[in-house]
Design a protein around this nucleic acid. Structure first.
Lengths: 182, 182
DNA sequence: CACAAAACAGACCCATCGGTCTGTTTATTC
DNA sequence: GAATAAACAGACCGATGGGTCTGTTTTGTG
């Protein structure tokens, strides 16, 4: 619901109604509505870590690992029915960043985690001698990150979830031309 | 205020208080709060068109025109004090897309406009013989679009407006390597 | 099976939300 | 300068927001 209607436009009553829970139950487990959203982010982070990190340790080459990172934002948390975790992240960023520091901290931490992993993969590609050695890991990682974010948003705006995968694979081609050792 | 706190987290009372307007005055000019946001988008669109389109007709080459498009989201509407129109767009997309069809229509129209212009610039680059002729205009344009969106978001998350320009110029380098005729 | 703590249910609360409505003031036109 | 419409002011309204509080039920433990 947060992903669909945004955090502030989803009332607790609506959440309770659709889940069949009650206020008493809810406020026993969560201090506030904001706290629920924070828990959702936390869960998202854990879920993503649990699903992606192991795959990255399977010893694939940098190319494959990058592709893995591309599919991650869509795959994680069984988001097959169009629940795009990245959109939630995006929404909470634009709604809550200036309102509550906790959101600011958590969200930028997630991004930083992704960033670090992407950097590591670029570095891996260099040592595997498939990426150009003059690349700035951080910059390339940032470009990838931007694309993943943007592609999610455009998929949302187009109301066409499949757009994301199409976009990412076309980005992949151009990116590889730019970073691979010729 | 919409950019900072999101549409739903900005109350009309707050808007009236900070602008010094009154409800009577406001509702004489706007049918609703949503209508105000739509007017903001419209204004943004016009402002951008008025500022960017003329520059695109100055007869610069495709490279220069692309750079122009990169700086557009930050430049337009005198957003020097950190008001990033793109963030507003992003926020309204995640908050209002599923709520009100008008937002959906207007926002995706803006994106489509950008897209079309970017495609034209890629095509221009081909005919100027500086971009590879095998490029798919639409795909490359989409990649650029994604990057612009993503870079805005990352600048927001990093709470560092300057990030946007840094990011875009580093993207520029990689992009040009990928699309330019060697 | 007693009994305490954990978990849940939902009536209730007040602040505030977007929006309306009845004035009053300011422009415009003849 | 009277008449009329445009523009504004702000008291007011019902609805709903997140959140509290007083119970009741369930669960674990001796």
């Amino acid at each position: 619901m947060f992903t669909r209607y945004g955090f502030n436009h989803t009332s607790l009553s609506q959440i309770l109604a659709t889940t069949g829970l009650t206020k008493g139950g809810f406020y026993f487990h969560f201090k506030s509505k904001e706290n629920l959203a924070l828990a959702v982010i936390e869960a998202l982070k854990e879920c993503w870590a649990k699903e992606i990190l192991p795959k990255l340790k399977e010893g694939k080459d940098a190319r494959e690992n990058l592709k893995l990172m591309f599919s991650a934002p869509g795959d994680c948390c069984n988001s097959s029915e169009g629940i795009r975790p990245t959109i939630l992240l995006l929404n909470l960023a634009t709604e809550m960043l200036e309102v509550n520091d906790k959101f600011s901290t958590m969200l930028s931490q997630i991004i930083k985690d992704w960033w670090t992993i992407l950097e590591a993969i670029i570095e891996q590609g260099k040592s595997e001698d498939i990426f150009r050695s003059d690349l700035d890991n951080q910059s390339v990682a940032a470009i990838i990150l931007c694309n993943v974010m943007g592609a999610n948003l455009l998929a949302l705006l187009n109301k066409e979830p499949a757009f994301y995968n199409r976009q990412l694979s076309s980005f992949e081609r151009v990116l590889f031309i730019g970073i691979e050792k010729n």
